[in-house]
Structure formats: structure tokens, C-alpha cells
């Protein structure tokens, strides 16, 4: 049973990180206003939302299974307050920070209509901090974190998100950028 919890904790953590990476990329794509061929814009927004929720589910499974695991023995404090853990406190603390940020992102995402765009957006910007922190936690804390295959995948994910951010900062990022620049010429 213990082994199962441990294995499940690792797999769910990996799945959560993979989904978060996809979600960040979809978030950037939906911000651009450009639909990928064959998929309407609102679908991208819905997929972004649903993948994020799925990533959160896996994150809860990741944290929950490691709380039940007799080897990891995560405490409630470890889950909420960073850098107090018994094993690799710094790397585990990064995981706690990312988890807290995900909670904030999820709550503000679900309550967007209530809290208003300004608060939502201020919190949502933290996605860009949450993703590298979560990745660093995986590398520093994960049993396979420094395995070659994982590092290759992490580098690939980093390159994809980096390219996404670079695209977002480019002047042609918005779908309507050209028409609008023309109007203000």
C-alpha cells in the first residue's frame, strides 16, 4: 500500500506538471486572439480552463497521496507553509509555493465574474511565476528529477513556454495587431 501511494504521488505530480505546462501554453495562445486552424477561440479558452482544473485535480492527488505515504509523511503545515519540510526543505518548499499559487489561481479563476477583471488579472499574472517554480520543484525534489529523460523533457517544456512568452512580447502577437497599427499610423 505504501509503495502504491509513493508511486501514485510521483506519477500524479508528473501528470500535474505536464498539464500545467500545456495550460500555460494554451493561456498564451488564447490571449493572442488567434484560433488554431479548425478550433474556435472559445474552445481554446474552454480547453485552457478544463486542463487547468484537471491539473489541479492531479495536484491534489499528488499532495494527498504524499500526505498518506508513510515515507514522505507530508504534514498539513508542509502543504501550506513553504520551506519547513524535513526532507530537502528548499525544493519541497518550492512545491508548496507553487501549490499555494495554484490555489489562488483556481479560486480567482472560478470567481472571475464576482471579483472583477482587475483582481483576476493581477492574480493570474502569477501563472508565469508558478510554472517555473513548479518545474524547479520537480527537478530538485523528484526521484527522477535529475534523470536524463526528465531533464530532456523539462528542457523541451522550457523551450516551448519560452518561445510562447517571446511570441507574446512580439508586436505581432495580437490577431488584430496589424489592422490596429494601420488605423493609428
Amino acid at each position: 500500500m505504501d509503495n502504491a501511494m509513493w508511486a501514485f504521488g510521483r506519477v500524479s505530480g508528473f501528470a500535474s506538471l505536464a498539464l500545467i505546462t500545456v495550460s500555460v501554453l494554451l493561456g498564451i495562445l488564447t490571449r493572442s486572439g488567434r484560433p488554431p486552424p479548425g478550433i474556435p477561440r472559445f474552445s481554446i479558452t474552454l480547453i485552457h480552463r478544463n486542463i487547468s482544473l484537471l491539473a489541479t485535480v492531479f495536484l491534489f492527488l499528488h499532495v494527498g497521496s504524499l500526505m498518506l505515504d508513510s515515507y514522505a509523511k507530508l504534514t498539513v503545515t508542509d502543504v501550506v507553509v513553504p520551506f519547513l519540510g524535513a526532507f530537502k526543505p528548499f525544493w519541497q518548499g518550492l512545491g508548496t509555493v507553487a501549490f499555494d499559487l495554484v490555489l489562488a489561481l483556481m479560486v480567482t479563476g472560478l470567481l472571475r465574474q464576482r471579483i472583477g477583471q482587475r483582481t483576476f488579472r493581477a492574480v493570474h499574472w502569477f501563472s508565469y511565476a508558478m510554472w517555473p517554480i513548479a518545474l524547479a520543484h520537480a527537478i530538485g525534489n523528484g526521484t527522477n528529477g535529475t534523470s536524463k529523460w526528465f531533464l530532456v523533457m523539462a528542457a523541451g517544456a522550457g523551450a516551448a513556454v519560452g518561445a510562447g512568452v517571446a511570441w507574446r512580447l512580439s508586436t505581432n502577437f495580437l490577431e488584430t495587431a496589424k489592422a490596429r497599427a494601420g488605423a493609428l499610423r
Binding site: 484560433p35 472559445f42 479558452t45 490577431e175 490596429r180
Partner: peptide, 23 residues
């Protein structure tokens, strides 16, 4: 004052809304 012309509404309501030159 809030609209940024991202175009989601025009996809969801194609018979009601179109898009102008700037989206």
C-alpha cells in the same frame, strides 16, 4: 471601455455579431 475585440462572442453568436476592421 472593457471590450478588447478578442472575438469569442462573435464566434458564439455568429448570426448576431460580426467583427469590424479592428476585431
Amino acid at each position: 471601455t472593457k471590450c478588447d475585440g478578442r472575438g469569442l462572442c462573435t464566434e458564439l453568436l455568429p448570426t448576431v455579431l460580426g467583427r469590424d476592421d479592428w476585431g
